[in-house]
Amino acid sequence: MKKIVITKILFLLSLCIYAQQEPQYTQYMYNPILVNPAYAGSKGHTSVYGLYRAQWVGLEGAPQTINFSMNKPINASKLGYGVSVINDRIGPSDEAQIAIDLSYSLFFGNDYRLAFGIKTTANLLNIDYNRLNQYNPGEVVLQNNISNRFSPNIGAGLFLYNKKGYFGVSTPMLLDTKKYDDIANTDVNQRYHLYFMGGKIFDLGSNIKFKPAFISKIVSGSPVQVDLSTNFLINEKFTLGAAYRWSASLSAMAGFQINDKLFIGYGYDRETTKLSGFNSGSHEIFMQFELFENFCNCETPRFF
């Protein structure tokens, strides 16, 4: 019975952590629309992105994330829009999210643009307690699975950019939603996250471009999370880079521009915390497809 009680406590604590933390990505710089709606349409053409992330491989119930997104400008206007679908699984919980983004851009000198964006999301939460390992399989420990619990939300963002760099601030979910857990008889709060991001491109020669970038996430009641990354683009084809998530992990990244339209990439994270002894790291693969319209005069490949 003591083991069962401890298991329940640990599980409920993990639910709280999960509810307050949105999915994290190592290669965030290639698809900022996931956290900043103002990015929609900023490339000047249709951009399609897909990603799969397996976090903490080897740890039972570790997070797995799949996302797919598309964004493009609206012809002959200052507007852009995007659609994203995300599925995030951790332990017995499975959450799906559909988001629609809309942006409006202002044009300034030196090719600078300032975009304002809004995001609307619909979330469906499922929790199957039967996935939990029980010490006494014949004893009912947890009941009342959660099925398709719906919660809407809204978000907003700013994105300042030109051909050589960008800076953004956003909060994908402005509302603090409560997901009632009738087993624990308490509320699990999903708090809003505030993101800051930025990056700059430096030409180191005719065949090498260097891009340092960062993203910072602030959540009430949790430590500030900061990701620092460096990427090198070689011969407009190969990308090599590294990243550091403050007091959490080290990462290596690589990518290849197959042609003007298709880019694929891979990232590997290794924990620097005590958790490293319980998993073999995190893996992240993605693809990015660019569809250039006839009216688009765009640089390719673009670094963000």
Rank of each mutant, 00 (worst) to 15 (best):
194 L>N: 06
267 G>D: 00
61 G>P: 01
35 V>A: 03
76 A>Q: 12
183 I>F: 12
88 D>N: 06
203 D>I: 08
19 A>Y: 01
272 T>E: 06
181 D>S: 10
125 L>A: 05
42 S>F: 04
96 A>M: 13
143 Q>S: 15
244 Y>E: 01
68 F>H: 00
184 A>E: 11
98 I>Q: 09
50 G>K: 05
78 K>D: 14
46 T>E: 10
259 N>W: 10
7 T>M: 13
61 G>H: 05
73 P>A: 01
208 I>M: 12
283 H>M: 07
177 T>V: 09
188 V>L: 14
196 F>V: 05
109 G>W: 15
95 E>G: 04
112 Y>I: 09
137 P>I: 06
255 G>I: 02
40 A>M: 05
140 V>Y: 14
65 T>I: 02
268 Y>A: 03
73 P>R: 03
85 V>M: 10
206 S>Q: 14
170 S>P: 01
16 C>K: 13
61 G>K: 07
242 A>H: 03
19 A>T: 04
11 F>D: 01
204 L>C: 07
55 Q>W: 01
164 K>S: 10
143 Q>R: 15
143 Q>Y: 11
117 G>N: 08
148 N>S: 13
55 Q>G: 03
288 Q>S: 11
133 N>H: 14
179 K>F: 12
291 L>V: 11
292 F>C: 00
68 F>P: 00
71 N>F: 11
223 P>F: 09
240 L>E: 08
46 T>N: 11
179 K>H: 13
179 K>N: 14
87 N>V: 01
157 G>Y: 03
238 F>V: 06
167 F>A: 10
170 S>C: 07
59 L>M: 11
205 G>N: 12
169 V>S: 04
295 F>H: 13
286 F>W: 05
299 E>N: 13
87 N>K: 11
119 K>F: 05
89 R>E: 08
1 M>W: 09
91 G>E: 04
156 A>Q: 07
157 G>D: 03
188 V>R: 13
10 L>M: 10
98 I>S: 07
206 S>W: 09
117 G>H: 08
214 F>K: 02
47 S>N: 13
303 F>K: 08
10 L>G: 05
279 N>F: 05
94 D>C: 03
10 L>W: 08
292 F>D: 03
56 W>E: 02
265 G>S: 11
195 Y>D: 02
293 E>Q: 15
125 L>G: 03
134 Q>G: 06
292 F>L: 02
148 N>G: 11
80 G>R: 02
221 G>Q: 12
175 L>P: 00
96 A>N: 15
234 I>A: 08
166 Y>P: 03
41 G>D: 02
42 S>Q: 05
159 F>Q: 02
106 L>A: 15
271 E>V: 03
191 R>P: 00
265 G>C: 05
115 A>C: 12
259 N>R: 07
144 N>S: 15
2 K>D: 10
166 Y>G: 00
225 Q>R: 14
147 S>T: 14
242 A>K: 00
261 K>Q: 08
85 V>G: 02
235 N>E: 09
125 L>V: 09
